[in-house]
Design a protein around this nucleic acid. Sequence first.
RNA 1: UCCCCAGUAGCUCAGUCGGUAGAGCAAGUGGCUGUUAACCACUGGGUCCGCGGUUCGAGUCCGUGCUGGGGAGCCA
Length: 460
Amino acid sequence: MKRHKIISLLNTETAAIDILIKGWVRTRRDSTDFSFIEVNDGSCLKNIQIIAEKDLSNYDDIKKLSTGSAVAVRGDLVESKGGGQKWEVQARHIDTISIAPDSYPLQKKRHTDEYLRTIAHLRPRTNKYGAAFRIRSDLSFAIHKFYKDKGFKYIHTPVITGSDCEGAGELFRVTTIEPDKVERRDGKTDYSTDFFGKAANLTVSGQLSAEMFALALGDVYTFGPTFRAENSNTRRHAAEFWMLEPEIAFGDINDNMDLGEETIRHLTGYALKECKEDLGLFGNFVDKNLLNNLENISSSDFIRLPYEDAVDILQKSGVKFEYEISFGKDLQAEHENYLTEKHFKKPVILYNYPKNIKPFYMRVNDDDKTVAAMDILVPGIGELIGGSQREERLDVLESRMDECKLSKEDYWWYVDSRRFGTVPHSGFGLGFERLLMLVTGIKNIRDVIPFPRTPGSIDF
RNA sequence: UCCCCAGUAGCUCAGUCGGUAGAGCAAGUGGCUGUUAACCACUGGGUCCGCGGUUCGAGUCCGUGCUGGGGAGCCA
């Protein structure tokens, strides 16, 4: 007999005879002649209430069902005689699949996020984390749907890369050489005997590969794990995280800003529409303003501001910042927060940054001072998107690589793409966990990824 | 990596001036009840993060290490 998902039973309009559910006991309450058992199967936030009468043959066992135990219940879906729920299951048979001992760490009360992080293998069984990871699943799907509907092709870019200085932070080395057998040549590690015959690393971005495919398939995107070995200890950074990276052929910086804004607004709108029940939990218990904030983000235009104007606003704000801002300096967190949380109180797209603080591949503007970069900053999180129009002119790209002291030989294939049919193109990276933080109101990135990897922490 | 805060029962926390440990919830037992974070009574439960020091005496003060959290930098 096929098991029914609890979500479909709770959403049904009609009673049903002889259904089967399987799930985990959240709580049991005993009455004189029967027990109430609340069962959750992960298909939705809500539990279904099971009525187990004492004339069931294994009623003694049923009264031993503890929080966390697994059961299979056959019975009838009937209208509930009590308040609080429309449907309940009048049980005919309850099979105990497994009993959780009283050492089961999840109790019928609120736990702190810090404690739940120490039992990350069990935390998806809580209401809050179940909801967070259902939303994560739904928004992953929404990304694919959104880009497919726009005619973008999904590209699987490599996780292991040979280019060792993409300019986006520290790298995790990939090697098969035993640490105590490392050979040295000219004072450096000799990778010629290593698996790939040269140094290899986990990718910090699929962008360079994605650009090659944008110049072939038109509009493309990548969506997968990314690795940074930075010793970052903040609530916004993880060593392994997921990044969405679209790349638009023939698109300029304005097309790029349009796509970034549309992506964020679409995904927040999608969550409001398709994840109502789970999102409601976060609106009630995590951030009372969450739903209003998401409505505002999804329904109103973002601010677009050249970097130079942002510097001007910050300088004239009268606010005493810890770090002074002036043209040529990167914005500090306090500056970003001022713009998104105090001055505009909404997402802000900053563009045309000074070229000295941005990587080699960003397109140099006519002023020769700035590049066609754009960051999307959102309240509470900071940078959610970073992107740019790419430098498509061979001579400009090569001279920028020289300025940044990058080896053109190592990037020969990247440079090659500017020789053959080069066209203007643009793209960005969106931190998926940061998007989930925005959508759920969860304040720590470790709580929106199933098993977080951070400096000094790789349990589970 | 730097700055700040914290670590006491299974969980969340209190612990006054340095005088040898407490609550709520959870668990166990019993009772009651179409209940719904059920309720009532009773019972058990402690390496006060580790190490060292000061002191007649340290959960409390000092040093140090570890772990966790917040902020900064790096970035998505």
